[in-house]
Simulated scan of single mutants.
Amino acid sequence: MSRVVFLLLPGVHLLDLAGPAQVFFTAADSGHPYTLGYVAEQPEVASAQGLPLRASLDWPELGPEDLVVVPGWRARTLADSPVLGPASLRALREHHARGGTVAGVCSGAEALGQAGLLDGRRCTTHHEVQDELARRHPRSHLVRDVLFTADDRVVTSAGIASGIDLSLYLIATRHGPAAAAQVARSMVVYSRRNGDEPQTSVMLRHRSHLSDTVHRAQDLIDAQFDKPLRLPDLAAAVGVSERTLTRSFARVTGGLTPLRYQQTLRLERAEHLIGQGATVHAAARSVGLQDARTLRRMRARAQ
């Protein structure tokens, strides 16, 4: 069972909080082991929209598989932001030091900066305060015009609805693209994704369309991307001809065929496994490739 703990600060934006919370809540409903918790430096926190929120004063015991999310808050400038107390700053730093992931939505990146977690790492935030974040934390590497960044288990997003994109990315990397696709479809989320950011999930990049036929085909590929998939079987499963499926798929994914989509999923998952310490051979076998040589060729073509 993994915990997702939200650190609530005064003036918290409800969508910064509710978007990611809904993603992990929906993932739990789909069978993934998540429990949600809320902590704050006072027992009741006033949201920016006027709804009072109650939270625990005590941090739960956290492990490497757990996630801490800091939703953004309302402030004219980051200089006007709440200053985190020593206990909160220590909790953020210690959780990351133990191998855990920390995330900041919108101005929540400022909280990670106060904890020193942006130093030497890529980050982003809402476009209105990007320049100020860069000035306040000059050792960070600000990335502009993206929905989210991920760097060494420090994840930041541009703000408001982009917290949903960030959370779907985390679901995709933890449980695979099929799990993220299931959550996205349940939430009816097919908006633009972070296409210019290399950490973004292939699944998320190519879900910004309204073709139900292609979505159903992608659901099948996402769930079985590590297995042989024949185009005739895929077309039959979604009730169209092979030609119709291929043409529709290419039209909404920028030219990808179903097979190419499957291969990009395999490559993305393999890269993630290698980044976690797996050998090229083990990563290749895990994603359904015959040998490491095939994976090396795929990686070379993608560069």
Rank of each mutant, 00 (worst) to 15 (best):
A181W: 13
R192N: 13
S107M: 07
D80I: 08
L147E: 14
L267S: 09
L118H: 05
D291W: 06
G116E: 03
Q42M: 10
R98I: 01
G37P: 11
V68D: 06
S107P: 08
V146G: 07
L168N: 06
V154K: 12
A46F: 07
L245Q: 05
L62W: 00
S56A: 12
L8Q: 12
S157T: 02
F6Y: 01
A181N: 15
A91T: 11
Q182W: 06
T253N: 07
H281D: 15
G288C: 00
D119R: 13
T246I: 02
A292K: 13
A172I: 06
T279D: 04
G163R: 12
H13L: 09
I160L: 14
L118T: 05
T101G: 06
G50F: 00
Q263F: 03
L67M: 06
G163V: 05
A283I: 05
S208L: 08
P43D: 04
T149K: 09
S81C: 03
V183S: 02
R98S: 11
L168W: 00
Q22H: 10
R3D: 09
P60E: 04
L118M: 09
L57A: 07
A21G: 02
R296P: 12
P64L: 06
F25Y: 15
Q290P: 13
R192A: 11
L289H: 02
Q49D: 07
S186Y: 12
I164E: 07
L14N: 11
Q199F: 14
E110K: 15
I164Q: 08
